[in-house]
Amino acid sequence: MEAKNAVDVKNLDFSYGDRKVLEEICARFHPGMVCGLLGPNGSGKTTLLKNIAAILKPQKNTVYINGTDITDMTANELAREISVVPQNTYIEFDFSVQDIVMMGRAPYIKRFSSESEEDIETAQWAMRIAGIEDLAERSIKNISGGELQRVIIARALAQRSNIILLDEPVSQLDIYHQLSIMETVRTLAYEYGMTVVTVLHDLNLAAEFCDYIYLLKDGVIAYSGKPKDVLTYEIIEEVYKIVCLVYENPASKKPHIVPVRSMQEGNGSC
């Protein structure tokens, strides 16, 4: 029996042309939890995310939502189930914040019909959760990077999907926005019961906010488990090729990683 709103990945392989990027990926993402996809550059975490979102075309019978193979779903059906916050957002044209958030309602609006009152209320709800109510009329050309990221999150929320995928949602933001956005993301899982899957670069953010971590290396899932089980200095050393110290964060009792130096050849290791 498949759990509701769970994402199942079964034996997923993926190649760009001849280059194999993902191999034999098996993973399961549960509602009400924040799952982190971690790994060095090029390990395939974004590719995995894009396969789950069907931005890349996965093979048949590899990715399931609520037990349904996503390759059998239309883009519209999928958009009601999964929303995505992409890594970099650059929008050429001068839309208002509200315009962008309203695009999240696209899967629900019939062609030629206008947004309903319900759509508008949903968009307002999404902006409230994302903390950008005051920006509704502003042009997306005139807001900060942190605000833009919240707009994109609001758009994803407006989709009213049960699953949200985030690709490095905070990598270009200052420390305040990193924390505040991750807190918002955590709310989505804990308060709204969404299935949250996020690619993260920052190991400490992952340790702090993720309930479960998949650590990828060279296209395979090298380790998976709770942060305290995965983010150990031995594993980090092996996967990231760095020397580091791992403490326990006294406030949250989560692992805290202090990188020391890279294990580049010629650097000498002890």
Binding site: A75, L78, R80, V84, P86, I91, F93, I100
Partner: peptide
Amino acid sequence: STGEETAKTLGV
């Protein structure tokens, strides 16, 4: 116009 990949995830 806001991005092709994004458009896909929005059901287009």
